[in-house]
């Protein structure tokens, strides 16, 4: 898999951008010394990258997020430090963008310098089990709205079709045609199809560029148990 210096994850609200971004950052850390994740989500009040901060830092991955993330106020501010990772060419940056065009608006202020450096990948995260993007036409429409708001074009697709803990191998296999249709309609390559770790063995030979992921973004009452198995 080829890695650009800056990888942005954007897509429809609830498509799984944050969880994919956390998994991708861990994957990058295997190959590169300095990896940072920037949480630019100005839409979501709960279930943010901030939830995984201690875990990411324990893996040597620096998290940059709004000082108000997970606090008791809903202030959609952006972290000043985000500029640093965009300009610091020694860092591999993973950028978690908020959902839909509303979330992607935050990218506008960073787009000129990202485009100027021209060493980035902007990935469209898709999930066919989200009811407002169940097919090619609706997903491509959301894609265009995000590109307009962000002032940037996507360069690839991440098929993250899932039903959370209830996802089956058939769900993943059944989503491939959906991702291919979007790929054909948009002209974007499918960079990877994500699959829960426990399903990886059963689908890896049937889906190209299969990427095993863990569910790090969890409900609060499940966190304690999750923290146990993370260690």
């Amino acid at each position: 898999m080829e890695h650009k210096r800056i990888t942005l994850f954007a897509g429809h609200y609830g498509s799984g951008k944050t969880n994919v971004a956390v998994n991708y950052a861990l994957h990058l850390k295997d190959a590169f010394e300095k990896v940072s994740v920037a949480d630019l989500d100005i839409v979501n009040p709960y279930f943010r990258t901030k939830d995984s901060e201690a875990f990411l830092e324990s893996k040597g991955i620096h998290l940059i997020s709004s000082e108000y993330a997970n606090s008791n106020v809903d202030v959609p501010s952006l972290p000043a430090e985000a500029y640093a990772i965009i300009d610091d060419e020694s860092v591999h940056a993973v950028i978690d963008v908020g959902g839909d065009d509303r979330g992607a608006l935050a990218l506008g202020r960073y787009a000129p310098s990202i485009l100027k450096q021209n060493d980035y990948e902007m990935l469209l995260v898709i999930n066919k089990f989200r009811p407002l993007t169940p097919d090619c036409a609706s997903t491509v429409a959301v894609m265009h709205e995000i590109e307009t708001a962000a002032g940037m074009k996507f360069t690839g697709i991440i098929n993250n079709s899932n039903l959370g803990d209830e996802t089956t191998a058939d769900d993943v296999l059944g989503s491939v045609a959906y991702a291919q249709a979007i790929s054909e309609a948009s002209g974007l390559p499918i960079k990877m199809t994500t699959v829960k770790e426990d399903l990886y063995e059963s689908v890896k030979d049937k889906v190209s560029d299969c990427f095993p992921i863990r569910l790090y973004v969890r409900q609060s009452w499940a966190k304690q148990e999750e923290n146990l198995w993370q260690k």
Binding site: N127, R130, P131, N162, L163
Partner: peptide
Amino acid sequence: EKVLMKGNE
């Protein structure tokens, strides 16, 4: 068929 949704949605 099941879909993945936020409680509010």
